[in-house]
Amino acid sequence: MKLTVNGETRTVDAEPDTPLLWALRDDLDLTGTKYGCGIAQCGACTVHLDGQAVRSCQATVALAEGREITTIEGLGGADAPHPVQAAWIEKQVAQCGYCQSGQMMQAAWLLEINPDPSDADIDRAMAGNLCRCGTYPLIREAVKLAAAKMRGA
C-alpha cells in the first residue's frame, strides 16, 4: 500500500484496517506522532489528512491512501518551523512534551480555519487534546502568538 506522507510516496506492508498511527510509527519510523490512548480520547496522535486534523489511531491506512498525510515532522523542521512550532518554542509550552505534537497539529488546523481565534475558539477546538502536565494556558498563548505570526501582525 502506498501512502503520501509529508510530500513523499512511501510504501507500507499493512492490512487496510491497520491504524494509520501504527503505519507511521512502526513502518515509517515517524515517531513524532504519539500513541496516547488508542481510542480518540486524548489527541496525542493527531495528524492531518488532506489538511484536516484527524486522530491517526482511528484513521485506517485505507482511509489515508491517496490522501496527503502530514505529520509533525512534515509540518515544519528545525530549519523552517511552522509558525505554530515557532510559537511553541518561543512560549516554551512543553513540559514532558508527550502530547505536544498532537497539540501543534490540532492548533495548525485551527489556524487554517480561523486566523484570529478567541480564547473560546481555542478552548473549543483544542479541548479534545489532553495534557497531563496542564500546559493549557501556555497552549492558548502559543496559539495566539502563532496566529499573529501567520497574520503577519
Binding site: D17, G38, I39, A40, T46, V54, R55, Q58, I113, N114
Partner: peptide, 24 residues
Amino acid sequence: GAESLPCGTCHIQSTAPNDHPHAA
C-alpha cells in the same frame, strides 16, 4: 464541527465494526 473541531477528527468514516469500548 467545521467551525472548530470537526466531528470527523475523531469519528472517522468507516463501515468496519465498532469493536473498542469507549473509542469514538
